[in-house]
Design a protein around this nucleic acid. Structure first.
Lengths: 211, 211
DNA sequence: ATATTGTTGGAATGTCAATTCCAACTTGGG
DNA sequence: CCCAAGTTGGAATTGACATTCCAACAATAT
């Protein structure tokens, strides 16, 4: 026991170069599988086969399946947010909002509307059954909503958006429209619902523009 | 084989009085469990214990687990829609829309924001993995969205809503706001996100009122 | 009442998942 | 080069789950 780490957690050991790579591969493979089949629907043997690792490697790096799920949530959060930058940090015009949302719609179409939102799907599955997962998901949505709110706040600070606009509520509403729209699109296999949902919310934001 | 039923389906036999009751009890119990733990997270033994039935009864009435899941989806759809009537059929004023949405917010609070939407949660879990479930869910959302659209259309026909308003898109957007708002509320354990999301969409509808 | 069909209990089966173990191998620092 | 720690493979364990079977029991129509 030479590493005095936090008690309770699997311990954050020192990883060798290859170790880090293996760990990453496991997370990415698990994320991909869990996106399509859900966390509960993805077994450790599934991940073993897809990532080309043995069971002991998974348990070595993540302790248990719940640990892996948490790592996947964090990975998806970082990954999805990174993918949306730098757009995500410049959501301070109606055009930027539309373009940003439209991009997600295009991706949804590209995959034939299979799968919803990487984070939203995990959220729906885990929010009630895994409290630590829920905590991570709260943080994930906050990190997502924050930049939206910031963009709107900048518009308001510049005097482009009415003082009466509640930027926090508008940001939440837009995120909700994205989530709900993605779900409807996933079920209907058409991105129309997503596009309509976000469009309505952005239209509403637009109506607060100071002309 | 005296009952010439559709091939492929478990056959719609004649049910005795007690049989119908058992069948209903299984569905309701399964619906309750699946609402909290998901369809995949609810095992047949779980349902057996909670409903006080034996395995053979479940397989007798539903063929297999997938059959039960489909029955649960239909039951939740009927049940949820019935619960919302008659409000659901009178969504032809801003006040009615607000009251209807507010009611769901109150229910969400009442259960401590645990669990999201009975239909939405199943949708998220099953849309990609079970095609017949997806078909039922498409129908469920259509049956839900229809009355919203009808209400808006009536407002428009009466000249209360601008001709420029796209009632179909607005109805979809409201349903998406409900779903996304419920998800965020479930994760955050606060109905605020739901209330903000639906409020923004209804505000937008309101902005189309012909004054 | 009686045969047919619906209903129920409970045990048995086969599969598969999560997790543990241990032994062998590699790597990096001193 | 050598040790401690990190890494890996593969087998073994344990438990749960979906599903099947069969035998007993009840209801219903003729």
């Amino acid at each position: 026991m030479s590493t005095p780490v936090k008690a309770g957690e699997p311990a954050e050991r020192r990883l060798t170069k290859g170790g880090r790579k293996t760990r990453e591969r496991i997370i990415e493979t698990a994320a991909e599988l869990m996106f399509h089949r859900g966390a509960g629907g993805t077994s450790i043997p599934d991940i073993q086969a897809a990532a080309g690792v043995s069971a002991s490697q998974i348990y070595h790096y993540f302790g248990d399946k719940q640990g892996l799920v948490l790592a996947v949530i964090d990975h998806q959060t970082d990954s999805r947010l990174a993918e949306q930058r730098p757009l995500l940090d410049s959501l301070d015009s109606i055009e930027a909002l539309r373009e940003w949302c439209d991009r997600a719609g295009g991706q949804q179409d590209a995959r034939g509307c299979e799968g919803g939102c990487e984070i939203g799907s995990l959220a729906s599955e885990l929010a009630d059954s895994d409290q630590s997962a829920r905590a991570s998901l709260v943080s994930a949505f906050d990190r997502w909503e924050g930049p939206i709110r910031s963009g709107l706040a900048r518009m308001q600070a510049r005097g482009e958006l009415s003082e009466r606009a509640d930027t926090a509520a508008l940001a939440t509403a837009l995120l909700a429209a994205i989530q709900g729209g993605m779900l409807l699109s996933q079920v209907r296999r058409s991105s129309t619902a997503y596009r309509q949902a976000v469009s309505v919310v952005i239209d509403h934001i637009e109506s607060h523009l100071v002309r």
